[in-house]
Amino acid sequence: MALSDHEEALLHQMEEALYAEDPRFASRIEKTKSRGLGRGRIVTGVAAGIVGLALIVFAAMSSSIWLGAVGFAAMVAGIVWAITPAKPALGSVGPDGVATPRKGAKGRAPGGKSGTFMDRLEERWDKRRHDQW
């Protein structure tokens, strides 16, 4: 069922408010949503699983225990490779404590804070203390 124009506008407004309120949380949700298994990873894993299964069958016919063990290991490794999502490459932290994204990475989420790690911690601490009083 499609959303009405009013519902789409309201949803868009809520998304903008989320980015403005907590850009870090919003970027995590976006990364999680866009992070899939990947077709190439699944194909490679399934192919390794099939090769491993073929090695097990061949080992059973030739009575070769070590070849069966290798086939089983290849089959399990292929299936695990196919069902686990790829992890994104991490950026680095400069000497001043500011995170630098990896090459080709998109910039910070809209409204993202800059500064050193300690500055951000102090801001959080001040905000918590202010909210308590």
Rank of each mutant, 00 (worst) to 15 (best):
W133T: 06
A59D: 10
G78E: 10
E7T: 02
F25E: 04
K113Y: 02
G71E: 01
F72W: 04
A20D: 03
D131Y: 01
M75P: 05
S62L: 06
M61I: 10
A47M: 04
A48M: 01
T44E: 09
F58P: 00
M1C: 07
G36W: 07
T44Q: 07
L90D: 14
S27D: 03
D5S: 02
V93R: 06
P85Y: 13
A73V: 11
G115Q: 04
D5F: 02
K33Q: 13
W66N: 12
F72C: 10
K127T: 05
S63L: 14
V76C: 13
W133F: 04
R102V: 13
V98S: 05
D119N: 03
A26G: 00
L67W: 03
K113G: 02
R39A: 14
P88F: 01
D96Y: 06
P88L: 06
G52Q: 08
G97D: 09
R39K: 14
D5N: 04
R108N: 10
A82T: 11
G45A: 12
L90Q: 14
D119A: 12
A109R: 04
G112N: 07
R39D: 08
S62R: 15
A60D: 13
D22L: 03
E122R: 08
D126Q: 12
I50H: 04
L53A: 15
R129E: 12
M118D: 04
G104R: 09
R35Y: 04
D96A: 11
S114H: 05
P110L: 11
R39H: 10
A86C: 07
K87D: 13
A59S: 15
P85I: 12
H12R: 06
T84M: 15
A9S: 00
E30M: 09
W133Y: 07
F117W: 04
S4L: 05
M118Q: 07
P110I: 09
G111R: 03
P95M: 11
K113C: 02
G111I: 09
